[in-house]
Design a protein around this nucleic acid. Structure first.
Lengths: 250, 250
DNA sequence: CGCCCTCTTGAAATTGTTCAATAGAGGTGG
DNA sequence: CCACCTCTATTGAACAATTTCAAGAGGGCG
């Protein structure tokens, strides 16, 4: 899918003098406060920055595949990714979408437990796992932060199990839109006409539905007046209260 | 459901002299190697032991409810528990079953994200969260262990999402039985006639099915010759290969 | 401007649910 | 120790939600 075969892994800011590593390129980072780097001071940030490389992905480009040796962890700085698992016959479950500020690749195993692929064009920070683990010895704050992230993901995973196991298509879509809105707000982006960059197929694979059911349910919510489908993959939450009622305690 | 209203929280081993705290009651712990205490030496274990109380639950007894202040974390030493979430109308999703050696209560939030209830009679070790967090400052091994546990749970949660979102009833039941067998083996228990202590309703709520569908699917697998339903909540995996094929890459 | 891919819509088929009744197992008290 | 009682599990039949199969509409990119 990548039309241009350009080198998609490149050191950021090569023009910055080496001696000024302490805050670059992280100084300009838009998501610093929400990610693994949040609890670090400038000196510590420099150590993290030193082992980091930048990665750029175009829409549809894979980052890694399930079963691959888990050599790196990532931080999303812009764009949207999906992570998913496959059954042998190709059925797919998207286990999460990732946005700016999200952390990716947490796995105590040797190999990734899921595949990751760009939904839109993306920028990420890449950290070699081995080097990050060295760093964690010296900076236990990082480990604490990771435990914090993992705990939050676990809570989200349980919420998603409730959705997958017990909610109707209508409830799933309502919950999904509210989740997108909540997360957009968290990272300081527009939450009411909410951006929905992923395809109907991706949404279906996330919610345990088919694309057709996703599409029909959007139509139905539109006809109810609960939402409006705007151009550019945006959805207006016309009756947010109603949506929250439908979602059922999200 | 608890017929006798006896004090179900009691210090273990009150007969042991206080000065011999270093290894008691943990010295006799059957699950020490598989839990939060695994990486600790005897001296460290004594510190953990010092903040621990023992809890006993009878079948059906709740341990805590979703939304309650999360004051404690637990380690299961024997028995089976379930953890679950509810929708406002009472629909339930069991997000996990816990067995000897499992850790419970990991939540960076102020409140529990799920309810926990005994499936069989249970014994647990209880640790006040605040005290354990103090201890983690001195014993970073514990924090590492928790991150490890959280990572593994995250992997399991993603596997469960795949099951809930994309597997058929038959595949779900097959995966479920194999998961029970695998976990029984891990803790050194009989894995082939596998113990299935939970009710059909609990299984259904775990797999996103109704009790009727669970029951019908068991019957169907029995008629295939894939499994045998034995007395005392045991299931013989008569054709394990077939079961693994059905489960689809579990 | 046109092609391709995604999204939408329709109708039929299917899986799993719901409602209902029976059978079985475990526990209690006589 | 047995009978009873209750709760759980099984089985059946009708129903419903979602899927599958199929076709057409829309939108974005070259």
């Amino acid at each position: 899918m990548a039309v241009f075969d350009f080198d998609r892994v490149s050191k950021l800011a090569p023009a910055v003098p080496r001696e000024r590593t302490e805050a670059s390129p992280c100084a300009a980072c838009a998501v610093r406060g929400m990610t693994i780097c949040a609890p670090l001071d400038n000196q510590e940030l420099a150590q993290v920055s030193a082992i980091m490389t930048s990665v750029e992905l175009t829409a549809g480009e894979p980052l890694f595949d399930e079963g691959e040796a888990a050599g790196n962890v990532y931080n999303v700085t812009s764009g949207t990714l999906k992570v998913y698992k496959l059954l042998p016959d190709g059925r797919r479950q998207v286990t999460g979408f990732l946005f700016a500020g999200d952390f990716l690749g947490l796995a105590k195993q040797e190999t990734y437990a899921f595949s990751a692929e760009a939904v839109t064009s993306c920028l990420l920070c890449r950290f070699p796992r081995a080097k990050l683990e060295d760093l964690m010895q010296r900076l236990p704050k990082i480990e604490q932060r990771l435990l914090n992230i993992a705990s939050n993901e676990l809570v989200a995973a349980q919420e998603q199990m409730l959705l997958l196991g017990r909610k109707t298509a209508r409830e799933k879509i309502a919950s999904f839109l509210l989740m997108l809105a909540k997360r957009a707000k968290q990272r300081g982006q527009e939450e009411d006409p909410v951006a929905v960059p992923m395809s109907r197929t991706d949404i279906g694979d996330y919610l345990g539905l088919t694309t057709e059911t996703v599409s029909r349910t959007f139509t139905q919510l539109k006809q109810d007046g609960t939402i409006q489908l705007l151009p550019n993959h945006q959805v207006k939450l016309a009756a947010r209260e109603a949506l929250e009622d439908i979602a059922g305690g999200f």
